[in-house]
């Protein structure tokens, strides 16, 4: 069930926001797309990740909704190699305490954001595999 490779299940559509965008606008993107994290870009270059947890922390810190994405984003992301199994992806998620991994060739765990990932694999993809449903990768 979890012997399947990440490359067979990853989602290739990666939703992005600009680092100068307000967190209100970034939150709108996340809400409208029904996702819990977005890749942050500076032009065509990825520079960070913004997750729902970052937005919860922003509210806790008292930042207004006009705060810039770059003020609250993380400059590192958590990665898995496309040839890894879903079990290996599950292990990385558990070790790193995250529910989403970016798929980058040759990368494992916490990585500096430098290149455009091939896709994303999330805990919901792994739940679908455990449930016996087919991957919805695109």
């Amino acid at each position: 069930m979890l012997e399947m490779r990440v490359v067979e299940c990853l989602r290739r559509s990666i939703i992005t926001v600009e680092k100068g965008m307000s967190i209100r606008d970034a939150a709108r993107v996340m809400k409208n797309c029904g996702i819990s994290g977005v890749l942050v870009m500076e032009g065509s270059k990825p520079v960070g990740v913004l997750s729902d947890t970052d937005l919860v922390k922003a509210l806790y810190r008292g930042l207004g909704k006009d705060a810039r994405v770059e003020e609250v984003m993380s400059r590192k992301f958590f990665c898995v190699d496309p040839s890894a199994t879903l079990m290996e992806a599950a292990r990385i998620m558990t070790e790193c305490g995250v529910s989403r991994l970016f798929v980058v060739r040759g990368a494992r765990g916490e990585t500096e954001v430098r290149e455009m990932p091939e896709g994303i694999i999330s805990v919901s993809d792994i739940m679908a595999a455990v449930a016996g449903d087919s991957c919805e990768g695109c």
Partner: peptide, 11 residues
């Protein structure tokens, strides 16, 4: 959930 916090910030 944290998604509801995202919805709040989105307004």
């Amino acid at each position: 959930t944290s998604s509801d916090i995202v919805a709040y910030i989105a307004e």
